[in-house]
Design a protein around this nucleic acid. Structure first.
Lengths: 229, 229
DNA sequence: TTAAAATGGTGATTTATATCATCGAGTTGT
DNA sequence: ACAACTCGATGATATAAATCACCATTTTAA
């Protein structure tokens, strides 16, 4: 589904690095850009494909995940409005090594890869913001490594809930657009374990879940579970 | 221990990004630099400290690790000659969020942080190489997330051995400068489990260990264990 | 020089979590 | 409108790996 384009110059929705560009550079970026809409559940980019474009999330929400040989998945990250996807594959990497699919109806700006690379080389402020973005992800990945290897079920799921409320949905209560399977694939446990953890947290009054409406009732206790679990 | 400095201009040991600098820029970098030697086991940078310098590994080997509240550690990465350490904390992050210590006698070039940041803004090729370096780490971290969450003991330890031989020591056989505890903290398992895995691999003829001399006898089988474990 | 601490190792027990079997409710598609 | 799926859920069982107790050897420190 290709929608009518609006120029980057007029976009009031720019990511940090694009705010650093001159009008001239924005015109160039704009001419190397496509706008695409996806429905919830649709695949946006497939692991193993050639990597040709950076994706900018104009609206909606996506999951970035590794497809593993045994058929299971590991969700690496959940991205909301304003995120750039595919940065780790700039310059040297020809093949995309993860998949991206829509968790909600989503609009993507697809920006030519080489255009993006040229902007890094030619505009220091742009490069700086790209490095910032990459570093944010790296530090987040380090924290995830700790959470996923040194915490057990409840601690990990507490991390997942805090991440969803604070970073992904930026709300409480929030409407969960991830399935139990998604939660399991993000938390790195089985679906059964997620269901059990939800039940436990609900029984203990830490959270409330009705359908897909989730409310964190006790942030302090969730923090405590995150630390001790 | 501060040693006599040699100018960056004459250094034939530069990392990829410093190769991109002009002589003028190298002079500036050189005047914002210190060279420091560490003994095996010494702490080079401590988690929680203010972050003021990028470290460049001139000789030796270091581990970068998270110190966790329960007293255990998670080794995030092992760096050898030519590596830059601390890149993820450029620009926005005032506090170093991991520790660095020497696995062998090590010489470090300590480069002023703001100098490094200026070089990114002013030299597009330098910025490009920094992005490349960050991306290499990000992709490596994603693979580690998969290994640590979706493989069990033997598979993970196989990954550790392959990483040590191919990336860290670039040799086979190699002299292991990591303790069993280090191996456990890198593989994200208990020390007992590492010892058991070593025994199993040795019995199965996959590796041979005598003291700290390690030889991988069957790469194919180790790859297989990595995939199926 | 001896004591203390760290490292490497073995076997038994415990525990967290995955797996399996099963079921009802809701959703999709023809 | 009904079959076919998917999703959320429950309880019983199986299992990988941590923990614990213990010991030998080496290294470090007093």
């Amino acid at each position: 589904m290709v929608e009518p384009k609006k120029s980057c110059l007029l976009c009031n929705n720019k990511s940090e690095c694009f705010k650093q560009l001159t009008d001239n550079e924005l015109v160039i970026a704009n001419s190397n850009r496509a706008e695409i809409s996806y429905r919830k559940g649709e695949m946006i980019a497939k692991q193993g494909n050639f990597y040709t474009h950076i994706l900018y999330l104009q609206s909606g929400m996506v999951k970035v995940y590794k497809e593993l040989p045994d058929g299971s998945n590991l969700i690496l990250s959940i991205f909301g409005v304003g995120s750039l996807i595919g940065l780790p594959f700039l310059f040297k990497n020809q093949i995309l090594d993860y998949s991206v699919s829509a968790l909600e109806d989503t609009t993507i700006c697809s920006i030519n890869r080489t255009t993006f690379e040229k902007l890094i080389q030619e505009n220091g402020k742009f490069a700086t913001e790209v490095v910032n973005q990459l570093n944010y992800c790296t530090i987040y990945n380090y924290d995830r490594l700790v959470s996923l290897t040194h915490k057990q079920l409840n601690g990990r799921f507490a991390d997942t809930l805090l991440y969803l409320s604070r970073v992904v949905y930026k709300a409480n209560p929030f409407i969960l657009t991830l399935s139990r399977k998604d939660l399991a694939e993000y938390t790195g446990v089985s679906v059964m374990s997620i269901i059990r953890a939800i039940k436990d947290f609900k029984n203990d009054g830490v959270i409330d879940i009705n359908g897909n409406k989730v409310q964190i009732l006790n942030f302090n206790q969730l923090e405590r579970i995150s630390k001790t679990g």
